[in-house]
Design a binder for these strands. Structure first.
Lengths: 155, 155
DNA sequence: GTTGAAAGAAAATCCCT
DNA sequence: AGGGATTTTCTTTCAAC
């Protein structure tokens, strides 16, 4: 399950986590490798699934998706079946960017992104709270996104 | 500030948010455009900053970054100066994937990713709680990442 | 002003040592 | 693992709508 990375792999991953448009040659120069070697290593990292994919990141504000909400959800029952149903439902909701199963006062933490407060209200009462597995929820709006990175630190 | 997108732009963005390795020709085929047109539109979307960049996403579990923590932070003072210092500090911490300024019982919500619980403990007491602006914090570990997407829904 | 076809440049991929 | 040929893709140009 756990894949070992050498220093060259880590360097490559650090670079492409920040900028996936770098050419193999640019990566090779910065990592002290040949471009063929970079190509082969990236191919391997993709094959074993360390690299899940490459995506374009958008500036959500610039396209009018300005509301970021943090929601805590408590389910009606904590059994496996209820959780499974809820999770399948969550994965299908385009407004939900992230969902974490947690323990404690609530069962799930969600990060939701919508264009405005009306849409949020619609998502909350029309979608989330309408789901039979959901008992209660607590929402708060993010005033600002102080930091957002997809790059995990490789230590 | 807010940039208007037509149907073709939205289709292109939807596709490259899911997979940035698609060629212009593949995008063109799926969006009903020519590859030149796709190229020009993507270039414009980059210039106006709608596309912030392209990055490689990794499978954090496979490289041993298995601990995902959600942390609520309350500052000692809610003045601008304290907040600014804290935010500058947070941006520099590689363990912090996301940070949101919120209102309510606490001031910031953090998502932190580290390799193991020892590293988390080190980050929490050695880094976060050692910062003079931090008054209190509440942490919970994510049992599971149910959903994680970087793709915002364009409606 | 926006489109698409086709040429030219650049990069990715594969082969061979 | 690296150098170089081949293939694919990206970028630019230019003519048409």
């Amino acid at each position: 399950m756990n894949i070992a990375l050498d220093a060259a792999d880590k360097k490559i991953l650090e670079l492409i986590q920040q900028d996936a448009t770098l050419t193999h040659q640019e990566i090779a120069d910065r990592a002290g490798l040949s471009s063929t070697s970079v190509w082969r290593r990236i191919r391997n990292l993709e094959e074993v699934g360390v690299i899940r994919g490459r995506v374009a990141l958008l500036d959500a504000k610039k396209i009018g998706m300005q509301v970021n909400a943090l929601i805590s959800v408590r389910l009606t029952h904590q059994g496996l079946e209820t959780g499974k149903k809820f999770e399948e439902f969550i994965v299908e909701q385009p407004e939900v960017m992230e969902c974490y199963a947690v323990v404690g006062n609530y069962d799930y933490a969600l990060i939701v992104r919508v264009s405005n407060v009306e849409r949020f209200e619609k998502f909350l009462s029309g979608t989330l709270l309408s789901h039979p597995a959901v008992a209660t929820s607590t929402s708060s709006f993010a005033l600002r996104q102080v930091k957002y990175t997809t790059a995990v630190a490789l230590d």
